[in-house]
Design a protein around this nucleic acid. Structure first.
Lengths: 240, 240
DNA sequence: CCAAAACTGTATCCGATGGAAACAGTATAT
DNA sequence: ATATACTGTTTCCATCGGATACAGTTTTGG
C-alpha cells in the first residue's frame, strides 16, 4: 500500500493480476470533495463517500491507506493547478495569484481547516508556491524574503477566506460584532467607533489613491502588503 | 443549561439547592487546555478531561452543554487578556500586539485549528480586537480600514504560527521543501533558486533600513504590512 | 490448459468517541 | 419534615475509523 507521499505524487503500484479495479483514487477524491463542499469535512465520512460510489466502506481502503491520506488527496485536488495568465510584472502577478488562491479556498472552505498542522505537501500545492516565487524571481528579494512575502500573502488570503466561511458577507460579520458589543459600549469603545464609522458611508473622498477599496477586506490587505513589499524593494535599490 | 454564548460571557445560573458543585467551568477549561497543549486537540476527549478531574465523563455535561462549547471556552481562556503595555504610537502598539498574539498561538497551537469556521466569540477575543482598534483610533483610517488592517495582521500572525506548529523551525521548513523538490528541479526552478539563495548567507548588506530581519518570517511580514499601512496613511494625508 | 498466486470488494467485528437517559444521593425552600 | 431541585454516576447507544477473514476474479507460470 502506497503511503501519503506516494499517493500524492502519483507513485502508485499498477497491479496486473486480480479483478479489475472499479474505482480510482481520483474518483474517490473528487467524490469526497463534493461531499465536503456540500456538508463540510466532519460530514465527509468513509461511509458516505463509499455510499456515493456504490461500494462498501472498506473497499476504499484498497485505494487509500486511511482517512488522513484521503484528506491530503482532497486538498491537493481541490487546490488544483494555479491558473496561468500572461506573464506580468511581479506585483500584478502576485495580485492575481492571491485572488485565484482566495477563489479556491472560498470554493472549498473545509480546505482551510484541513491545511492546518503537519501534513504531506502535494504537487499542486507546491506548484502554487512555485508560481509565486517565480513572480518574485526577477526582483531584488533574497530567497527567504520571497518566501516570507508569499507566506504573508497566503496568511492574508486564508484569513479573509476564513472570515467569509464563517460569516458569508462582511456586513454579516459587522452585524455579529455589533450584536456582541451591544450594551457593552463601555468595554469596547474602539469597536463601537469602528463599526459606526464604517457603516456610515463616508466616502466623500472616493478617489483614494487608486487603491481599489471596493473589493473589501481581501483587496485592502493585499494592497497594503504589496505596497509594503514595493517600498522594501525601492529602499533596497536606493537607500537614500 | 446555558448555551455557548452565556457560558463565554459569564451568564451562568447560580443554583441554590442541591449538593455543592465539585468543579467550575474555569477549572474544566484550564484542565482541557493543559491536555490540548501537551497532546493536541484530538487527544482532548471528554474522558481524559474527566479523568484528570477525578470525575466521570458525564459529570462534565453538568457544566458544559457539549464539546463544542468546551472548545469555545478553551479558546477564549487560552487567548486570555491581551497584555497591556504603556501607550504607544499606533505602529509600535500594533507591532507588540501582533507579537503577543503570536506568542499565545505558539503556546497553544491547537487554538489555530479550533478557531476556524463559525463559532461563538468570547470576551477575551473581543478584547484583543478592541485593543488593536484602539491603537488605530487616532489615525485617519476609517472603521472598516482599521478592521481590515487588523484582519491582515491576524492572518499573518496565524499563518506564521501555523508554519511553526507544523515545522518547529524555519530551517526545518526549508529542509522539507528541499526534500520535495529534490530530483524535480525542472518542475520547480523558482523554489530551488529561492532555497539556495536563502541558505547561502548573503547578508553582506546587514544594515537593511532598520527592518529587523533577524526575527524571521513573522517580523518580515509584519514590517511589510505596517509599512503598507503607514504609506497608506501618508498618501491619505498628503495626496501628492 | 490448469493450478497457484495475486488481487478484488464484502461481511463481520472492534475500540473509542460524543452524548442521552435513568438513577440514587444531597442540600435547600416551603 | 417533606417536596423540590440539583449533584455526580451508571448504563446504554449510534457513529466513527479501521483490522481481519473471506469468497470471488484475473493473470501468470508450468
Amino acid at each position: 500500500m502506497p503511503d501519503a507521499h506516494d499517493l500524492l505524487w502519483g507513485h502508485r503500484p499498477t497491479p496486473t493480476r486480480g479483478p479489475r479495479r472499479t474505482l480510482t483514487v481520483e474518483h474517490i477524491a473528487t467524490t469526497a470533495i463534493t461531499i465536503a463542499d456540500a456538508d463540510g469535512l466532519p460530514a465527509t465520512t468513509m461511509q458516505r463517500v463509499a455510499e456515493r460510489l456504490d461500494v462498501t466502506k472498506m473497499a476504499l481502503y484498497r485505494y487509500v491507506p486511511g482517512k488522513d491520506e484521503l484528506v491530503a488527496l482532497m486538498i491537493d485536488t481541490a487546490l488544483g493547478e494555479p491558473p496561468d495568465g500572461p506573464p506580468a510584472p511581479w506585483r500584478a502577478a502576485l495580485r492575481s495569484w492571491s485572488d485565484a488562491l482566495f477563489t479556491r479556498f472560498a470554493a472549498h472552505p473545509w480546505a482551510l481547516a484541513a491545511t492546518i498542522g503537519p501534513r504531506p505537501i502535494g504537487p499542486h500545492e507546491l506548484t502554487w508556491l512555485e508560481r509565486a516565487l517565480a513572480a518574485l524571481a526577477d526582483t531584488a528579494l533574497t530567497g527567504s524574503e520571497a518566501m516570507d512575502t508569499v507566506a504573508t500573502l497566503v496568511g492574508h488570503v486564508r484569513g479573509i477566506a476564513q472570515q467569509m466561511a464563517a460569516q458569508h458577507t462582511e456586513a454579516a460579520l459587522q452585524h455579529s460584532f455589533a450584536t456582541l458589543v451591544e450594551g457593552r459600549a463601555d468595554r469596547f469603545p474602539a469597536i463601537v467607533r469602528a463599526l459606526s464609522s464604517s457603516s456610515s458611508s463616508d466616502n466623500q473622498d472616493s478617489d483614494n489613491q487608486g487603491s481599489d477599496n471596493q473589493g473589501g477586506a481581501l483587496a485592502f490587505g493585499l494592497d497594503r502588503v504589496l505596497d509594503g513589499v514595493e517600498l522594501f524593494l525601492r529602499v533596497k535599490a536606493n537607500p537614500s
